Amino acid sequence: MARPPLPPFDEASAIEKVRLAEDGWNSRDPIKVAQAYSVDSQWRNRAEFVQGREQIEAFLTRKWRRELDYRLIKELWAFGGNRIAVRFAYEYQDDSGNWYRAYGNENWEFNENGLMRRRLASINEHPIAEAERKFHWPLGRRPDDHPGLSHFGF
């Protein structure tokens, strides 16, 4: 199964790939998101190691049960060949109504079919007041006219 855009990436196709990933994650649909990864995909997410689509689905299901009202923005940092580096920020609240903002970097490696076969993520988060939130679009895809990370200085 091909998942365009395919490597090798140029700037336009890398930006498109990043936006497609952001859109997928903002759907908060673990099954849909997992389809963007190869069946043998390997992840490092903070201190957790995940391998394969089944584990990816389970990981994302747990994540979005804990992280309510999740909204994410990704931005291209660098690209070359079959690799893309991104930076991101997301906001969410827990089941007690406490808000958080997480910042991170991801390194992605794709197979020839455009499926991500490796994802290495480093993430830090901190509590924020609800009044400090920056990501206010309705749940789902970030509108095209909503500012990106650079606008907020993240």
Rank of each mutant, 00 (worst) to 15 (best):
M1Y: 03
R3T: 10
P4S: 05
P4F: 02
P5H: 04
P5I: 03
P5T: 07
P7I: 04
P7Q: 04
P7T: 04
F9A: 01
D10P: 06
E11R: 08
A12K: 08
A12D: 13
I15G: 02
E16H: 01
K17E: 00
V18G: 00
V18T: 00
R19M: 00
L20F: 00
W25L: 10
S27V: 00
S27Y: 02
D29T: 07
P30H: 00
P30G: 00
P30E: 02
I31N: 03
I31W: 02
I31S: 10
K32I: 05
K32A: 07
K32Y: 07
A34P: 07
A34R: 05
Q35R: 11
A36Q: 14
V39T: 15
D40V: 00
S41C: 15
Q42Y: 15
W43Y: 05
R44F: 12
N45S: 15
N45F: 15
A47H: 15
V50I: 15
Q51R: 11
E54G: 05
Q55H: 12
E57I: 07
A58R: 12
R62P: 09
R62H: 14
W64F: 04
W64T: 02
R66C: 13
E67Y: 09
D69L: 13
Y70K: 12
Y70H: 14
R71C: 14
L72D: 09
L72E: 10
I73H: 07
I73K: 03
K74Y: 14
W77M: 12
W77P: 07
G80K: 06
G81R: 01
N82Y: 08
R83G: 04
R83D: 09
A85M: 11
V86W: 11
F88H: 11
A89L: 00
Y90N: 04
E91T: 04
Y92S: 13
N98V: 14
R101A: 09
A102D: 08
Y103P: 03
G104Y: 07
G104C: 06
N105P: 09
E106N: 11
E109W: 13
F110P: 01
F110G: 01
N111M: 09
E112K: 10
E112I: 11
G114N: 01
L115S: 04
L115V: 03
R118W: 01
R119T: 07
L120H: 13
A121S: 08
A121C: 11
A121R: 03
E125R: 02
H126D: 10
P127M: 08
P127E: 06
I128P: 07
A129F: 09
E130N: 10
E130Q: 09
E130W: 10
E130D: 11
E132R: 06
R133Y: 02
R133Q: 03
K134H: 15
K134G: 07
W137F: 04
P138V: 06
P138T: 08
L139T: 09
R142P: 13
P143C: 11
P143M: 11
D144H: 13
D144F: 12
H146C: 13
P147H: 02
P147Y: 06
P147C: 03
L149K: 06
L149E: 05
L149Q: 05
L149W: 04
H151V: 08
F152R: 11
